[in-house]
Design a protein around this nucleic acid. Sequence first.
RNA 1: GGCCCUAUCGUCUAACGGUUAGGACGGAGCCUUCUCAAGGCUUAAAUCAGAGUUCGAUUCUCUGUAGGGUCACCA
Length: 443
Amino acid sequence: MSEVITRFAPSPTGHFHIGGVRSALYNYLYARSMGGKFILRSEDTDPERSKKEYEDEFLAVFKWLGLEHDEFFRQSDRKEIYKKYLEDLIARDVAYISKETPTEEGQRAEVIRLRNPGKKVTFEDIILGEITFDTTDLGDFIIARDIESPLYHFTVVVDDMEMKITHVIRGQEHISNTPRQILIQEAIGASRPLYAHIPLILGKDKSKLSKRDPEVIPAIEYKDQGYLPEAILNFMALIGWNPGTDEEVFTKDALIGQFKLDRVQKGGGVFNIEKLNWINKEHLKKLTEQQIGEYVKKFIPVDFAEKNSQYLEKIIPVIFERISNGIEIKELIEASEFAFLSPEISLQKDVLNWNAKQDSLVTALHLKALIELLQNIDDFNVDLIKSTVMQYADTQEKRGAVLHPMRYALSGQDRSPDPFTIASILGKEETIIRLENALKILD
RNA sequence: GGCCCUAUCGUCUAACGGUUAGGACGGAGCCUUCUCAAGGCUUAAAUCAGAGUUCGAUUCUCUGUAGGGUCACCA
């Protein structure tokens, strides 16, 4: 049994998208799970469209996601190799130089075509099963513009042979490319790799992907949006594959341990951002306190961070609890969820009185009691504040009689974190000041 | 249009030819609660349609329908 070698071969002609991430992932996972090799190959044979910046982009995505490759090739470095094969094919008259009548701009008067034996080609797909095509209608298809300019189908086959690729794992859009590549394999005397065509990622309502769909954004942007590498890997793996158990949260290593090509789905799947968010949160929960701090700070707008620098460390856990990605951190802050940090809060008497449910005298009584209780707390931490205040609040018929005025006095907001958390964030001094200010408006 | 592929809750999916068709996300409701968040519990929700094979089809076969892929001197 020879070593498994897989490859992922993106073309640097545009942004690298999430669909590519999944193809790469399945190749990676399969190779790693079999103790084999994973090769990355930049298919830049089209000089018109290939751009270095796009190659840098997918390389950056691979690095971010931790999909490390064992070897890297660039097709533009391998021109001599393709030329040699092309010459051999022509010498053996398996391919030939064909005179053409150009119909479009840029077309050559001579191209290289493969002599198509015109037969039925059947191959066994690991995921889809047996597939048969009649290659007759392909005709003598073009494999190179000229001896120096091989085309995609040709370079793929030459490279896969030279790199000893054992498993070609790619999207189902390549399924109809397979027969012509098999014909080329037979022409150059290459052995046939095993094929596994994985289901495509679909847009909402299972239709074709449109630019509107979230998955069409460049993959690297998920990094900027605060998605964790393992969450992306985890989520992408789950579109089109499952381990057969109820388990859904996986680390990269767990994925490697569980992944099986024969459990890959046949039908396409929709990219569901809600589930990605949930998975991201699950991975976020595994971060250490320090990592959480770094993560949250990265997404806090600078002006907000500067204005509230004294509270920053303390609100990190409060923010973290409420979000599942980095974008939500920005949204949370923009939505004024932390307006209570500002010293200028304005209060309304009715709201302070538990939305007019309570008499001002009673509210004042509670506020005074709170001031005294809190005054006596030396170590002003959430737990101690909570136990002290709760002990008092529980003596009332409804805790809200105490807790609502406290929370509102401290935040000035209808909705906010609980009063203990706010108090601990503001600190003893500011807390007392705000309670006293609230007292004043009750007269 | 030709060729090829696919079809289970809204979404991702599970189910030797025999299950009350299971789980997760999202939804709804309840609990917890001073509000929000988090958490816990409960719940609604699917086998594309029609034939056939079979004692019995989500599962096998055929037809239809729908969706997708591909038909380049792109990859």
